[in-house]
Simulated assay, not measured.
Amino acid sequence: MRTIIITGAGSGLGKELALLFSQKGYNLLLTGRTLEKLADTKHEIESAGGKADIIQLDIRNNADVIQKIEEISGTYKIFGLINNAGVGHFGPFMEINERQIGEMLDTNVLGTILMTKAILPILKQNGEGQIMNIISTAGLRGKVNEAVYVASKFAVRGFTESLQKEYEESSIKFNAVYMGGMNTPFWDESDHIKDKSRLRSAKEIAEIIMDQLDQDSIIIENKNS
């Protein structure tokens, strides 16, 4: 059974994509920071007849990423990776502190690069695969009170577009997903979005993504855009 790894699979878009890919017959490897949430996603997948396992790893730690990927590569037939885990801190640029800057760059950029670098040799050896980077519309244009977050997403956009060109003659597919804000726990500790109920649900976004898996760039604007 082909296996897909999803980072940040415990809630929001990562969870919804895991559920949908499991319905297509993939085995899911769920990664994230909170084991409780990952266990909930695993339970939902298995209750619906799918298969899922949990891996605890720190995507910002290269040694941990390499070790865990090496461990699973002999057990699972890795087909894909969804770099979904992300961190956002919002507000006037001068009020964003060094810790917040580091968290965004380490998770959004470094984590995506390290996971991709660890998985690509396996996909090349298998002769096929798919890597999806969840970028958000912050990777398309600048936004007020999102300077560093946008910078991190522009970096992931450039990374993804470069790999699309580098591997365009191969059987490895790269998707860049640019979606507007979603009604997810991502905003629970921020007042940047005043009324998240007006945003699309993570389930709705996941369904749109699944319908466009053949596209290099998947752009999903907010409903009121």
Rank of each mutant, 00 (worst) to 15 (best):
T3G: 14
I4Y: 00
T7V: 01
G12C: 09
E16T: 12
L20F: 14
F21Y: 09
S22Q: 10
G25V: 03
G25N: 13
G32F: 03
G32V: 09
G32L: 02
R33V: 00
R33L: 10
E36F: 11
L38G: 02
A39Y: 14
D40L: 10
T41W: 02
K42I: 06
E46I: 00
E46Y: 08
A48I: 06
G49V: 01
G49M: 03
K51M: 07
I55V: 10
L57T: 04
D58P: 07
I59V: 13
N62M: 04
N62T: 10
A63L: 10
I69T: 11
S73I: 08
G74C: 10
Y76E: 06
K77A: 13
F79D: 07
N83F: 04
N83T: 06
A85M: 07
A85K: 08
G86P: 14
G86E: 01
V87T: 11
G88S: 09
G91R: 13
E95R: 14
E98G: 04
Q100A: 08
I101M: 14
M104E: 07
L105Y: 12
T107G: 02
T107H: 05
G111H: 12
G111V: 09
T112R: 09
I113G: 11
L114Q: 11
L114P: 15
P121Y: 03
P121W: 02
I122W: 03
Q125C: 12
Q130S: 15
I131F: 01
M132T: 15
G139W: 09
R141S: 05
G142H: 01
K143I: 05
V144P: 13
N145G: 10
A147H: 02
V148Y: 12
Y149R: 06
V150F: 01
A151E: 06
V156D: 05
G158S: 02
G158V: 03
G158I: 00
E161W: 08
E161M: 11
E161G: 05
E166R: 12
E168Q: 13
E169G: 06
S170Q: 02
F174S: 00
N175G: 08
Y178T: 00
M179F: 09
G181T: 01
S190T: 12
D191G: 07
D191L: 06
H192L: 08
I193G: 06
K194W: 07
K196D: 04
R200W: 12
I205K: 05
I208P: 05
D211N: 15
E221R: 15
K223M: 14
K223L: 15
